[in-house]
Design a binder for these strands. Sequence first.
DNA 1: CTGAAAGCGCTTACAG
DNA 2: CTGAAAGCGCTTACAG
Lengths: 334, 334
Amino acid sequence: MAVVPEPTTSRRVTALDVAREVGVSRATVGFVLNNTPGQTIPESTRERVLRAAERLGYRPNSAARALASGRSRIILLVLPDWPVEFRMRDYLDEASLVLDKAGYSLVTYTRHPDQAARPLWESLNPDLVLGTLPFSSPDVASMLACGVREIYPDPDRPDLPDVSLAFSAGPELQVDHLHERGHRKLVYAAFTETRASSLVIARHQAASDRARLLGLATPDLESVDYRDDSPDVAVRRWLDAGITGVVAFNDDVAAAIASAAVRAGLRMPADIAVIGHDDSPIATMFVPALSTIRIDTAALGRGFADFVLHRVDRRPLPAPRTSPKPTLVRRETS
Amino acid sequence: MAVVPEPTTSRRVTALDVAREVGVSRATVGFVLNNTPGQTIPESTRERVLRAAERLGYRPNSAARALASGRSRIILLVLPDWPVEFRMRDYLDEASLVLDKAGYSLVTYTRHPDQAARPLWESLNPDLVLGTLPFSSPDVASMLACGVREIYPDPDRPDLPDVSLAFSAGPELQVDHLHERGHRKLVYAAFTETRASSLVIARHQAASDRARLLGLATPDLESVDYRDDSPDVAVRRWLDAGITGVVAFNDDVAAAIASAAVRAGLRMPADIAVIGHDDSPIATMFVPALSTIRIDTAALGRGFADFVLHRVDRRPLPAPRTSPKPTLVRRETS
DNA sequence: CTGAAAGCGCTTACAG
DNA sequence: CTGAAAGCGCTTACAG
């Protein structure tokens, strides 16, 4: 267990303290602690430095390190304004872990809705800023002025791979399942507030491609708002149009649709089938329980971290990884 | 709109650049940009500095500032591992805004479940770390070693006010409402994973105090897990014990209970009444729609920010603020 | 009213 | 193999 060093003098332990303790120079301490390549430190010295640092409870001052090296080793992920995926937590946990091993810290951040507060990249000096949507040009200018050297998505390099949760296997599985259950006319449903998000667009696209492959009509992207009667209106309209299968962007959307179906006295899946995405708590709590897709968020998080390390450390991207396979969780609405 | 300065040389603009542009010293630039008290800068100089900084797109290097001043102006809020309140977003948005005006940035952070990654306070050097639960002593030691000067909750100062979302008016309103509807035996329900959290304990306490005041028996704190049949078991047991009113920690818990009630063929509120807390989306989507409590999270967020500024800047705490009043949203389960 | 200068704690060529 | 030294871009007493 860590012992608080010298509780009387609250001065922080610096590399100089460690150097003096061991009897080497400040630079040598830095070399062993940072594993600086190209330096050949005798094993005994290395050992003594490591032990002294441990004993004194030395923690490098990250501000000093950032100032001297020009790199903060902070990765900033800007999250969208709307409620984020239920599974995002696992995803970020896993990504943090991989990045941490490489010496980077992942900070997530949701901007104030009316952008009133200064953006976090001004006070954090991150090496890389990632967003789920392209940044506005004032934002990009602000990042550049703050010394951010890597921005993603990069307006100048639209070719970069997408590393969000927008992988296509989930939507494909949703469509496959409804098709298999005999549904021929489908619709893709999202919430109004998120319908323009890249994630919704990407998933709808994947579902559409799959439908076409199966010889079905392209499912329209329709948006509803759970706070008004738009789900009820939509369900009625869909039934009139002969649509019997609803591919929902996530479980919350599925719940809003299923909710309207219950209120309309419809039976699921006999009258209408609904399938969500993410396997979040609401899917099991809802009555009837919602069919959904479970995805391997941890694997996706690792993929995200690999991408980040590629950008900041020029590490090679791991071989075209086989996307983790999502699994169908069939419950009562399909 | 910001103009990216000198796109050819990617060197960042520094205070020295601004000083040279205006023809003053580097120190003067700092004085006007920081509004340093005790310095009397002629209005004309001030104007010129401000304009030059704007024109050149100057952003102070936060690492250099932190190193020189010994303060990072970063506030780190450590969030619990379990899914956080739906309303937390508004709360944090508002708090960020207030803190930003005072020159501080709020960073939120959820630790990796198995604490495998280095904690974020090591790379951020925050001035203040706040948690929703007391920190372990290794954590506290680590923060101290990293130069964190303020920690909350503070093991040495247990007298400090609670600034979390644990204010008592919500639970009181829940109890009042069920009492008014004729329920005499109540239970307090939470999810198993969060039952030990300070927020659950505080809200249960508030509900208990209120029940006692009304002459009711103290509601037990019972925990359920939506992933198994524990809600079904609990509901049956409660009915056998003559309990007809369920005070749920939040709307998710309320949904899990209501879900079990529907499966058991019970009618709400005739057989059993359930009231949630937070007015989250699930409360309106669930069938039947859940009664709940709506709280003024923005006001709470401001209170949080005031508390933070009291700690880091020694600002006086605003007068004992009258807690914002929560409102009852009665729907179909009570 | 303003500037010269020391110092924050690191990293990183560069010399030995 | 190791150390002396410059420098990162600020803040902050201190002198004028």
